[in-house]
Design a protein around this nucleic acid. Sequence first.
DNA 1: CGGCTGTGATTGAATGACCAACCAATGTTG
DNA 2: CAACATTGGTTGGTCATTCAATCACAGCCG
Lengths: 188, 188
Amino acid sequence: MSTDTREKILQAAFDVLSREGYENTSIKQIAEEGGVAQGLVHYYFKSKQRLVMEVLQFVCQKIELGDQGEAGALAAFEDTKQKIREDRGSNALLVQLIGISLHDPEIGAGIRDFVRGQRGRVEDIARQVFAERELDPTAARGIAGAVWGAVLGIIIQSLVEPEFNADEAIDALAAMSLSAVYPADQSA
Amino acid sequence: MSTDTREKILQAAFDVLSREGYENTSIKQIAEEGGVAQGLVHYYFKSKQRLVMEVLQFVCQKIELGDQGEAGALAAFEDTKQKIREDRGSNALLVQLIGISLHDPEIGAGIRDFVRGQRGRVEDIARQVFAERELDPTAARGIAGAVWGAVLGIIIQSLVEPEFNADEAIDALAAMSLSAVYPADQSA
DNA sequence: CGGCTGTGATTGAATGACCAACCAATGTTG
DNA sequence: CAACATTGGTTGGTCATTCAATCACAGCCG
C-alpha cells in the first residue's frame, strides 16, 4: 500500500498545485485532495519543497519529449505544439517553479537540472541536423539555447494570454531555425 | 514629503523582492529596508499585490527597450544582451511575477499587459524589416511571438544557470531570425 | 505675533488567520 | 509482536491587514 499512497499524494499535489498555485497550496489541502491525513504527507516527503520537486519529476515523465531519434527536428516542433495545447497544468507548474527556483536553493537545483536536460535534447537534434548537412557543429550550443528558450517563452505566452496563437509562433520558430540551415528552402 | 516616501517604499520593495524573492518578502521587511513604519506601506499601497505591481511598473521604466526607431533589429539584439547582463534584479522580479501571475488575477492582468507591450515592440521592428524587404508582413505576428519568447527564455536560462552563455544564444537567435529574411547573408 | 485647529503623514502594536513541521497514539499486516 | 502505515491534533511561528494614537505643519484668527 506504501507506493500506492505515495503516488496518490503526488497526484493530489500536482492537481492542487496546478489548480491553485504554489503560494496558495498548503500541505493540508494536498492531504484533503488525496483523501489522506495531513501527517502522511510529511511521512513520505521530508518537506514541502522536496514534495514539489518530486511532483515535477513525476509529471516530467509525461512532459519529456518522446524519443526523438529518427523523427528529427520537424517532428519535434509538431510534438511541442501538442504539448502546449494539452499539458497546460504541467506547464503552469513548471513556470511557477522556475520563478520560485530563483530564491530557493533546493528547487533551484532541481530546475537547473531540468533546464539543462531539456536544452540538451534540443542540442542533440541540432547537432544531428548539422551533421547531416556537414555544417560546423560549434553553433549547435547557441542554437539550442535560443530554440529551447523560444519554446519556453512561447509556453509562457500561451499561459499568460489564453488567446495567444502558440501554433503560429512555433511555426515561425521552425521556419526561422530551418531557414538558417537550409538557406534555399523557405516553404514553412 | 509624500511622493518622496512613496518612492522610498517602491525602491525598498524592489530591493527586497529581487534579493529575497516574493515568497520570502514580508511587508515588515520592506518597511524596515525603507526605514519607515510598517503601517505606512499599507497607507500608500492598498495591498501587497498592488505594491508589487507598482514596483514592476516602476522598474519597467528602466527595462523598457530604448526607442528603437532608427536603430533597427541588430541594435535591438545588442541592447538585449546588455539588459540580460545588467538588469539581473529586474529580470528576476519579472520571472517571479510571471509564475505568480498564473494564479493571481491582479498580478495576472499586469503581467499580461506587460507581455503584450513587449511583444508589440518586437512586432513593430519585424514589420519594419519586412516593409524594407517588401515581404509579406503577415508573418510578423508569429515571428514576434517566437523572437520575444526566445528572449524571455534566454533571460530565464541565464537566471537559472549562472554559467549559461546568453550572448551566444542571442547571437544565434539574431542569426536565425535574420537568415529568414536575408536568405543569402549568413555571416553572424 | 502666538495660539488654535484641521488634515495628511507616520507610528507601532494588535488582530485574526494560516501554515509547515512535529509527534504521540493508534491501526494494520506479515 | 515488531515494523510499517496512518491519524489528527499541537506547536511555534509568520504574515497581511487594520487601527487608534501621535506627529508635523499649514493656514487662520484674535
